[in-house]
Design a protein around this nucleic acid. Structure first.
Lengths: 354, 354
DNA sequence: TTGTATGCGTTATCAT
DNA sequence: ATGATAACGCATACAA
């Protein structure tokens, strides 16, 4: 009653395992050296036994498993789910399978994920994440690269195929937008801290994962307008809705209350929106709010959220394409694709109150 | 420059591959028949070469891959992400890996997903989905069961370990709630249609996947209160936010406008909320709205959404536990776990307007 | 047109 | 304490 193998089929059909393999694989090279009669016999045996080739054995023999790995920085954020969505779609279209893992909560085990994933897949799609900043992880990554293990990264990287899409330009536009609306005190909800980070007090993260693509242009925008960068207006917090709520509460209870809030992602913005409502503040009349990521909900909220969009589904798809071509041709020069982000003005921003 | 194998390590350390295997595996049976000296030598060689055991070969040899598959009915719905989240967490804790696939868009290929997943994993977690209603799929499922391939299902099933959690009771409560608030015309946004279904006009789906656990109690509730079941008040649609929006628009433009709306999930409810807002209707003053699933956002919306919660993260975890015990002991009698859903009254429901 | 034999990288059983 | 070696299930080069 256990899984039948090629041998079982061969026995039942009265042929050799090679023949079984031939008919199963449709006879690789164009040539079809199998008589219709035995073919049928084998097919019948397969049908009768319910034979399915063992993917593990195939993987060993063939040297690949048609599986690629995706490591998400934070499985709770819809932003990343959209990416996963795109990745899954494109992979499936290409006949590949998706091994999914999340890195959150797993600071120390980051390197293990890394190892484990690379051991069981034909390629990896990485996203900028804290996990990869550890020395351990970097070492493993270097090793994979040396071995030319196929990797594509979502987010900038000097030595890896990558699809980059950051919020620098979009943030500049957002600041211009806010500034032109006469906002002078603009708060930043800088939700970049993962739960596990609290333990080991990590320094400010690098790359867009750390939200620097939003933090820096924010500061620049202020300075360019001759405004001070008030540290009081930047609150660093976690990435959940509740974090956004708390951060906004803190900001909105400041003696000199900001008239606009930049939340580093839409989830945080939703928390902020709730906080504003709870404080009796009307948006955008009393407070302007801008988010990031343009999650599907953003345009259905009341008010519809002003935000920036990265089209992560597209980013996910591009990453897959990139990875697949890399697998196909390991010698190809390093690739880099840019997916433009765009700033979208909707209803949550308006003129500063007097 | 390619992946080093046991043989490479053995050569470099001047030992046999068996010895390498011994030190890598920490010497299985308690007994440790390896001298500290060679041990070090092997370890050094491993370090130097950056050797990692090949998971594919291990899988073949060991007969398992520490990987389980999860098939999501609709990757776009946060409800299912939560499930995946729980599954991923629990799996990781148990040292397993997650092969993820989505069934949406893939009516015809449903059976293929099925096959492919079972070929490469040690077990499967299924959710109620249309895909499995096809005869093809049923046949494959039957075969897997006969072969005693480990499967756990999220949603009722007569012959499979399952964790069930439906909305029957919750819906009854919701109806009672609405009725006691004097609502007499209650609309149902019945978002159960997948995009691909349009092609082949499928009959009404079975099981909670089809939302019957909400439809039936809804009708019963009405009848029990002596109210008619007006087909006009039930609009069947897709599962996206936009679908919810459109459905609500249709309902709210009825000559005899309903005073309350039941949306089969929170996404639809959010669409409905937007529609109400666009029509100048206030919630809950002019219209009561109840959703399902209690997605994280639900309690941050304005108004906070009255909904029902299934705790899908928990469901996901339970499913994994179930599957893992099944793998460990294939002879165990069929299991079934119920996870209670609860109806949560928040701010989107109130007394019917006059 | 089909069968034989070999190897993919491991682990585990037997020797030594 | 360690080394040969036989599977695991499959795909293929080569023979027949």
């Amino acid at each position: 009653m256990k899984r039948p193998t090629q041998i079982d089929v061969a026995r039942l059909a009265g042929v050799s395992t090679a023949t079984v393999s031939y008919v199963v694989n449709g006879l690789a090279d164009g040539r079809v050296p199998i008589s219709e009669e035995t073919r049928q016999r084998v097919l019948d045996a397969i049908e009768q036994l319910g034979y399915e080739p063992d993917a593990r054995a195939q993987a060993l023999r063939l040297g690949h498993s048609q599986t690629i790995g995706l490591i998400l920085p934070d499985i709770h954020n819809p932003h990343f789910w959209q990416t996963a969505d795109g990745v899954e779609q494109e992979l499936r279209a290409a006949g590949y399978h998706l091994l999914l893992s999340s890195a959150d909560l797993d600071a120390d085990h980051g390197k293990d994920i890394f190892k484990e994933m690379s051991r069981r897949t034909d390629g990896l799609i990485l996203m900028s994440a804290y996990v990869f900043q550890s020395e351990e992880a970097q070492k493993i990554l270097a090793q994979l690269l040396k071995r030319r293990f196929p990797i594509a990264k979502i987010g900038e990287h000097p030595a890896i195929d990558c699809v980059v899409s950051n919020y620098e330009t979009a943030t500049r536009e957002a600041m211009k937008h806010l500034l032109s609306l006469q906002h002078r005190r603009i708060g930043l909800i800088y939700g970049v801290r993962s739960p596990w980070e609290d333990r080991e007090t990590v320094d400010l993260p690098v790359g867009s994962a750390g939200g620097l693509d939003r933090l820096l242009p924010y500061q620049d925008g202020l300075r360019a307008a001759g405004l001070p960068v008030d540290p009081e207006l930047i609150v660093t917090c976690g990435t959940s809705i509740e974090d956004g709520y708390q951060a906004a509460m803190q900001l909105l209870n400041l003696p000199a209350r900001p008239t606009a809030l930049l939340a580093i992602n839409d989830l945080l913005a939703i928390g902020a929106l709730r906080a504003a409502t709870d404080l009796g503040l009307r948006i955008p009349a009393d407070l302007s709010l801008v988010g990031y990521d343009d999650i599907p909900l953003a345009s259905y909220l009341t008010p519809r959220l002003t935000t920036s969009s990265k089209d992560m589904v597209r980013v996910g798809r591009e990453a897959v394409k990139m990875l697949l071509t890399r697998i196909q041709d390991p010698d190809r020069p390093q690739q880099k694709i840019e997916v433009q982000a765009r700033f979208i003005v909707r209803e949550s921003t308006g003129p500063a109150p007097f």
